[in-house]
Design a binder for these strands. Structure first.
Length: 461
RNA sequence: GGCCCGGUGGCAGAGUGGUUAUGCAGAGGACUGCAAAUCCUUCCACGGCGGUUCGAUUCCGUCCCGGGCCUCCA
């Protein structure tokens, strides 16, 4: 069996992946808080996790992938108030858009997509358990987790409590026993959403939902817990503390064995932020850029490295895909055997099995094409499609991708045909000035001309 | 202040103790009336300084620079 290696944030090194149960790999990824459109950073997490799942599925018979939707949160409450929209309407709208946008990027839906508001009972149970066992305390209408009660607190993010205090940027609530303690349950005002609980009407803190939903949907322990790099602290650290204490586990691995975190996206070299106004929304990008281009761009650097989003990244990804689609177009009549994984496309899988080395995988993909004269076209095509399938690319119709098909856009096809005929006549008459001016005219219409052995072809640029 | 991660050719971006990453761009050539596409050839590299070594871009130390986290954040 192929060996899969994964960088584990817990321990901070690459490890050979050894599943808890090889018959069913269980993965949980912290999903979006749905109060706005997803940005390219959200998409990176979704695409990278999607790739992780695709690779695991190549190796293991069954993979269960859970990724939640956070649909109760102070930011959501704020956004709902601002837009004068009921919370449920807002979260339904943006979770639907999130899934639609991710689908365009070739991201498959998780097997389960639990919502926080549907697991309040489970959260209340967990919190009660933590209070009963003296890991948490009730004060001033809040339930707080007592960080000092968990000896492994800080192990994931490799920081000690003293270090955090040195930073002195921890929110100080008057009634906290310890500044590092975090909220499990907080009271809701009458105009805020809330649920009845042993501690009065209120709502959960942010971290408890993932502890509740991951346990409920996957059982413990599960194999991989994923999310963005910024979630390492405090979110995942707190999840570990809650779950481990509730179950009297000591080691974080008893909750989840491997901790998988993707790096950030910057935009033209700068961090994405609302203040600089450079947040790239997926919903906008896919209006002008094919989803596959966005996906490939997001996979062009290693998932733990920072990724710079720029015009040239997009352009390169587009060029790369065009090259593959041209080959697929030229070989559109070739039979393929996609069930058969050929040697070279295995190299793509091998690269991905080394902690998702997408850069190397894409280099191997390129090698498949470079090797095309040493083997049958059918073999090359098969290899390309197999590799593309794992990467989640090359799934479109080549003629549509390259613009040879009418894509429902308003082109005057009869005019184009007439101009092409005029140009052919001009060329036959060796009137190249006229021929070139017709080509420029077509170009200005967004049409590119290709003179091939089979005659003149046109495509949408 | 603490913790973590990086610094590779014009750009993007892997990897390795001694041998070509890869893509785009550039140069030359084939093809073409010219283009486009395709193919062939080719230039360009490992932040600074020490150390280990027969040999380091790769290991160690140190310095400089950049990014992230420590508060909500993918």
């Amino acid at each position: 069996m192929t060996e899969f290696k994964i960088h584990n944030t817990y321990g901070n090194k690459k490890e050979v992946f050894i599943p808890n149960d090889p018959e069913n790999i269980k993965v949980y990824a912290c999903g979006p808080t749905v109060y706005d459109y997803a940005h390219i950073g959200n998409a990176r997490m979704a695409v990278v996790c999607d790739l992780l799942i695709k690779v695991l599925k190549e190796i293991y018979p069954r993979v269960t992938y859970v990724s939640n939707i956070t649909d109760i949160d102070d930011k959501i409450i704020e956004a709902a108030t601002e837009n004068n929209t009921p919370i449920e309407e807002l979260t339904n709208k943006f979770s639907k858009i999130y899934n639609e946008d991710m689908l365009v990027l070739g991201v498959q839906l998780p097997d389960l997509q639990p919502r926080a508001t549907q697991h309040i009972d489970k959260m209340i149970n967990l919190i009660s358990n933590l209070i009963e066992n003296d890991f948490a305390y009730f004060t001033n209408a809040h339930v707080l987790f007592s960080v000092k009660k968990y000896s492994n607190y800080g192990k994931l993010s490799t920081r000690t409590q003293e270090e955090q205090i040195a930073g002195s940027r921890v929110e100080i609530l008057e009634f906290k026993d310890d500044p590092a303690d975090f909220v499990l349950w907080k009271p809701s005002e009458d105009d805020q959403p809330g649920w009845e609980s042993p501690w009065g009407r209120g709502r959960p803190g942010w971290h408890i939902e993932c502890s509740a939903m991951s346990e409920k949907t996957l059982g413990l322990p599960f194999d991989i817990h994923a999310g963005g790099q910024d979630l390492i602290f405090p979110h995942h650290e707190n999840e570990i503390a809650q779950t481990c204490c509730a179950h009297k586990f000591n080691k974080p691995q008893d909750y989840a064995k491997y901790w998988f975190h993707n790096g950030f996206v910057t935009v033209e070299g700068e961090k994405m932020s609302k203040s600089t106004g450079n947040i790239k929304l997926v919903n906008n990008l896919i209006k002008s850029i094919p989803g596959e281009v966005v996906r490939l761009a997001l996979l062009s650097s290693h998932y733990r490295q920072p990724l710079n989003w720029s015009e040239s990244t997009i352009k390169q990804s587009k060029n790369t895909l065009d090259r593959y689609y041209r080959f697929l177009y030229d070989t559109k009549d070739q039979e393929t055997n996609e069930k058969k994984i050929e040697t070279t496309s295995n190299k793509v899988l091998d690269a991905l099995c080394d902690d998702l080395n997408t850069s190397l995988a894409l280099a191997e993909l390129s090698n498949i094409l470079d090797n095309k004269n040493n083997q049958t076209k059918s073999t090359t095509k098969t290899q390309l499609l197999c590799a593309g399938k794992i990467l989640g690319i090359l799934g479109e119709s080549p003629s549509k991708w390259l613009g040879y098909e009418d894509q429902g856009e308003k082109f005057d096809v009869s005019l184009i045909d007439k101009l092409i005929q005029d140009r052919i006549k001009a060329r036959n008459n060796k009137d190249f000035t006229l021929a070139d001016s017709i080509r420029i005219e077509l170009n200005n219409m967004g049409i590119e001309i290709e003179d091939t052995q089979q005659g003149t072809k046109w495509r949408k640029k």
